[in-house]
Simulated assay, not measured.
Amino acid sequence: MTDNCTAANANKVFDLVVATYHEHDDVDAKVENPYENGSFEHTLFAKCWIDAVQWHLEDIIRDPQIDPVAALALKRRIDRSNQERTDMVEEIDTYFRQKYACVAVGPDATINTESPAWAFDRLSILALKIYHMQAETMRSDAAEGHVARCRAKLGTLLEQRQDLTTAIDQLLSDIAAGRKYMKVYRQMKMYNDTDTNPVLYGQKN
């Protein structure tokens, strides 16, 4: 990955992903990642694309008229998507671990409540929330009260993104300066593991 690891840069990538997805508006659409393979932006684009597709899968599965067989297949697809999303977040955190491996950690350094990559994950989801909330403010078929409430929520989401953007860049600055340190706790999802999910390992006996 190249070193363009700022939250502001990530927001640009995420907004591009969301706009690109809605040009197709298809959970099965195939798009070419516009960023150089191995770059930070390439990884962010791929990760946010997963988020965008999953956002719309979650909409589809909530259709009260959905066929139960189709719903089960969709649920399995969402599970796979969640796993891919987690894998990519860990890939980003591994990069940050390597990037700051030689930093001398100060004696009073503290650990953050979440890793940098999971904070970037929140930014990705915020880009989707902002897009769809903005769409709600532009609905001509919605009641005036609905539009007004969505405008207020949109303002909150934009403020949240600005605050999170600032906080992420401050976190990375603190890690680079040794004021904070990071750890990577690998996923321990038990329901996907045939050795820890009793429904699955029970079938092996």
Results as ranks from 00 to 15, higher is better:
Asp3Gln: 15
Cys5Pro: 00
Ala7Arg: 11
Ala7Lys: 09
Ala8Tyr: 00
Asn11Val: 15
Lys12Gln: 11
Phe14Val: 12
Asp15Glu: 15
Asp15Cys: 05
Asp15Arg: 14
Leu16Pro: 01
Val17Asn: 07
Val18Trp: 03
Ala19Leu: 03
Thr20Arg: 12
His22Ala: 04
His22Phe: 15
Glu23Ile: 01
Asp28Val: 02
Lys30Val: 15
Glu32Asp: 15
Glu32Thr: 12
Glu36Leu: 13
Gly38Cys: 05
Glu41Val: 05
Phe45Ile: 01
Phe45Asn: 03
Ala46His: 00
Trp49Ala: 01
Asp51Phe: 12
Val53Ala: 02
Val53Met: 02
Trp55His: 10
Trp55Thr: 05
Asp59Asn: 10
Ile61Met: 14
Arg62Ser: 10
Asp63Ile: 02
Gln65Asn: 15
Ile66Pro: 06
Ile66Arg: 12
Ala70Asn: 11
Leu72Pro: 01
Leu74Gln: 08
Arg76Ser: 13
Arg77Trp: 04
Ile78Lys: 02
Arg80Met: 15
Asn82Val: 04
Gln83Val: 10
Gln83Leu: 12
Glu84Gln: 15
Arg85His: 12
Arg85Trp: 11
Met88Ala: 10
Met88His: 10
Glu90Arg: 07
Thr94Asn: 13
Thr94Ile: 02
Phe96Met: 00
Gln98Phe: 07
Gln98Glu: 14
Gln98Thr: 11
Gln98Asp: 13
Ala104Asp: 09
Gly106Lys: 15
Pro107Met: 09
Asp108Gln: 13
Thr110Gln: 13
Ile111Cys: 11
Asn112Trp: 14
Thr113Leu: 04
Ser115Glu: 10
Pro116Leu: 06
Ala117Thr: 08
Ala119Cys: 08
Phe120Val: 03
Phe120Met: 06
Asp121Met: 07
Asp121Val: 04
Arg122Met: 11
Leu123Cys: 07
Leu123Gly: 01
Ile125Gly: 03
Ala127Leu: 02
Ala127His: 01
Lys129Glu: 08
Lys129Trp: 05
Lys129Leu: 12
Tyr131Asn: 11
Met133Ser: 05
Met133Arg: 03
Met133His: 03
Ala135Gln: 09
Ala135Tyr: 03
Ala135Trp: 07
Ala142Gly: 01
Ala143Trp: 06
Val147Gly: 00
Ala148Asn: 10
Arg151His: 09
Arg151Val: 05
Arg151Gln: 14
Ala152Met: 14
Leu158Pro: 00
Arg161Val: 04
Gln162Asn: 09
Thr165Phe: 07
Ala167Tyr: 08
Ile168Phe: 02
Ile168Pro: 01
Ser173Leu: 08
Ser173Cys: 12
Ser173Lys: 13
Ala176Tyr: 08
Ala176Ser: 15
Ala177Ile: 00
Arg179Thr: 01
Arg179Ser: 06
Val184Thr: 13
Asp195Tyr: 04
Asn197Ile: 01
Gln203Ile: 09
Lys204Cys: 08
Asn205Ile: 11
